[in-house]
């Protein structure tokens, strides 16, 4: 939750700050630079407060003997399913922000260019264990995976 809030703050904060600084420096265009800066900042602050809570409540993941499932989003809910027999790679990624929060993202890809299943914001240890378990499970299912 903290991570998402921080990401949103950065996402809105950086352009808002750039516009703000420009607005203070460039006299004639001040109004047209400061207006969007304020709008972006307000929208960013509100979503940083609201969305992480919503997402946290709605994001779910599950790994069964047959497949990996995830559910993400609130406005646009999305369920993704990848059967274990079709998994090709299992990666864990820890960005600088995620490391700060002790989190990791687990990405499970299949042969499809569009079928990757991502589990974001996992506890780093859970992610590592899960990656190992999934890798083992995929190795024991001998199939072409395409």
């Amino acid at each position: 939750m903290g991570l998402w809030a921080l990401q949103l703050v950065l996402l809105a904060g950086v352009p808002a700050a750039i516009l703000g600084v420009l607005g203070l420096l460039i006299e004639p265009a001040r109004f047209w630079l400061l207006l969007p800066a304020v709008v972006i900042a307000v929208v960013g602050a509100v979503s940083a407060l609201l969305f992480p809570r919503l997402w946290f409540r709605h994001h779910r993941w599950e790994v069964t003997d047959h497949a990996v499932y995830t559910r993400t989003g609130w406005l646009f809910q999305e369920w993704r399913i990848a059967p274990l027999s079709r998994i090709q790679t299992v990666d864990t990624v820890r960005g600088p922000l995620e490391q700060r929060f002790g989190l990791a993202t687990l990405t499970v890809t299949t042969a499809s260019a569009k079928g990757a299943v991502k589990i974001e914001g996992l506890d780093a240890e859970t992610a590592a264990d899960l990656a190992e378990a999934l890798t083992f499970a995929t190795q024991t299912t001998p199939e072409d995976a395409t």
């Binding site: 999305e78 993704r80 059967p83 079928g115 299943v117």
Partner: peptide, 8 residues
């Protein structure tokens, strides 16, 4: 090889 279900 998998499913994605979307609902806004």
């Amino acid at each position: 090889v998998g499913w994605t279900v979307r609902q806004s």
